[in-house]
Every structure is written in C-alpha cells, then in structure tokens.
Computed example of a mutant assay.
Amino acid sequence: MPDRRTVLRSATAAVLAGALPKGRLHAQGTGPVVLVTGTSSGFGRLTAESFARAGYRTVATMRNVGGENAEAARALGHMARAEGLELTVIDIDVSDDASVAEGHARAAAQVGPVEILVSNAGVGIPLPAALSMEATREVMETNFYGGLRMAHAVLPAMRERERGLLIQVTSALGRYTLPLYGAYCASKHALEAAFTALAYEMHPFGIETTIVQPGGYDTRFKENAARDVARYRDRIPPERQAPYADHLDAVGNILANTPTPPPQQIADAILAVAEMPRGARPRHVAEGPGMSDLPPLNDRLREVTEQSTRNYLRRPGWITL
C-alpha cells in the first residue's frame, strides 16, 4: 500500500493537471468565505476571480483602494456585477497592523467568518542587500510580517470553529537564493519556516496549511519591482551607489520579461487545493517554470522537520500531518 505522502502527491498532480473535481464546485455565492490578499494584479487578481467564479464568497483585498489601486478595485467590482459573482473588494494594507485588523473585521461583518485565507500580497525590490536597509524593511514588512499579520487575524475564529485553511504563497526563491533578491528571498524563506511551524501548531485545531511555491511568471510583479527600484535609487546618493554599479546594471536582467506559461496556472493550483477534501491537502505545491527540483527538496525537509518533532517536541498530534 502506498504511503500517505505518495497518495497526496498523486492527488495533487491529478488536480493540477486539470482534473479539478467539478462536482464539488459551488452554486454561486454558496461556497466558503475566502479572503485573498494582493488582488490588484497578478496571481492575487486571478485567484480572486477564479474563486468567485467557482461560487466562493470572495473577499478581494488590496491596499490603497481609493488611490493607486482605485482602477483595479473598480475593475474587480465591475466584473463581479457583470457576472453576478459574490465578490467584495476591501482595502487591506498587509504591512499595517490597524489596516489588517479593520479590513478583516469588515470582511467578517459584510461577508462572514473567513474560512480560507489566501495570503498572496508581496513586493520585490531587487537591490544589493548591503545598499538599502529601508528597502529590506519594506520587503520584510509586506511579505513576511504581512503574511503573519493576516494569519493572526483569521486564526482565532478558525480555532473556535475547529476548521480552516491557510494557503500561503511563497516562491521558488523561498528554497534557494538569487543575488540582488536577497531581501525578497529572505522574506520567502522566513514565510516557509513560519508557515511550516504553523501547520504543525494549528493541526490539533483542525486547521490545515498549504504553501504554494510559484516559479517565474511574467505578471505586473516585475513592473512594480522596477518602479520600486527606481524609487529607492532616487533616495540613495550616487557615491553610495557607485561601488555597486555592476550589481545595479544586472538588475535589468532580473526585471526583463521572458516568455512564461500563463500565470492562471497558479490561480488554478490554489483553487485546486481549496477543493481537495480535508486531510488530503498537500503541505507544498510547487508549480511553474523551473520547479522540478523542488518536490524532492520539500519532501526531504519535511522528513527532517517531522523527525525533529519526534525527537524534541514529543507532541503526537503534531508529528505527521
């Protein structure tokens, strides 16, 4: 008989290959409440649209709904009205404690308790790690602390109900490191560590955790990163930039668009995880270009984590998820 890990990997591969179980999609507006962060563009936007079209009661969040993301918010609202979807746009800046608390409270009041959190919001500012502490702080506040803020917001109600699902979007760069993306890689490595720990800690409460690791896709992420790089370079005196001239020249290679598969693949993968039965969801989903080496690495790190749990924590409910 195959072990549980083999069963999970086979089930996940089937779902990601397009075998989404249509019978378990929901009549419009009757599905669980899902909150998606970072929906102004890219994976977040596509994921919010996919959940809403699948019948989930969807809360699409983004920062600065009344400012720079006003057009994105209007477009999502227009799509929802045109297609008769249960989708609500709410302003949440994941880098701000008060914004997270207020936005989550609005979502719960207007739509209902959050049953699935898709924590996707993120920024990348490719600069030499030694050049700007301010850029590093912004990346960590948004990517790492932002993911934890959102988890802290939804977990109390999930624990009370003894069920819930956390889907944290990390990156292939949460497992290896790319020069000039030191802050971004650090934030994604940190998310991998924190949400792996949360998976074990929340398991006794009936709360599941899946970490989705996208490969490289062309979305507006690179366009936003280029804007942020320019913003920080304007603040850094030329004499400080001079020693890093070669590094800064190489930033252009990172930001160059290259042909990739459609980013809808990630939205489909996230929806597929939500549609899987409780107890059958994988710990990691690695999807996209250049990801073939990640599943064996994820498996090996999981083995080490579970062995450490057995050796040091001795909590039977935490050991094998």
Rank of each mutant, 00 (worst) to 15 (best):
D3H: 12
R4K: 14
R4S: 14
A11S: 14
A11D: 15
T12P: 04
A14V: 03
V15S: 07
P21I: 07
Q28S: 06
G29Y: 04
G31S: 08
V34S: 05
G38D: 07
T39I: 07
S41T: 15
G42Y: 10
G44Q: 08
G44I: 07
R45Q: 14
L46M: 14
S50M: 12
R53S: 10
T58W: 02
V59T: 04
V65Y: 03
N69Y: 04
E71T: 15
A73D: 12
A75K: 14
L76T: 06
G77T: 14
G77C: 09
G84F: 04
V89I: 09
I90E: 03
I92W: 09
V94G: 04
D97N: 05
V100D: 01
E102V: 04
E102C: 02
H104Y: 15
H104M: 12
A105C: 03
A107L: 01
V111Y: 09
P113W: 06
E115T: 08
I116F: 06
S119V: 00
A121Q: 01
V123H: 01
V123G: 05
E138R: 13
V139Q: 09
M140N: 02
N143V: 00
Y145K: 00
Y145S: 00
G146C: 02
L148W: 13
R149T: 04
A151H: 07
H152W: 12
E160R: 04
E162I: 00
G164I: 04
L166H: 10
I167M: 11
S171H: 13
T177E: 14
P179T: 11
K188N: 12
E192M: 06
L198Y: 15
F205R: 02
T210W: 06
I211V: 13
Q213K: 15
G216P: 11
K222N: 10
A225M: 05
A230Q: 12
A230T: 10
A230C: 01
I236V: 09
Q241D: 06
Y244M: 02
D246C: 00
L248E: 01
G252D: 15
I254D: 09
L255D: 11
P259Q: 10
P263G: 04
Q265C: 07
I266Q: 01
I266E: 04
A269S: 13
A272S: 11
E275Y: 06
P277E: 06
A280D: 13
R281Y: 08
R283M: 12
N298E: 13
E303C: 05
T309S: 12
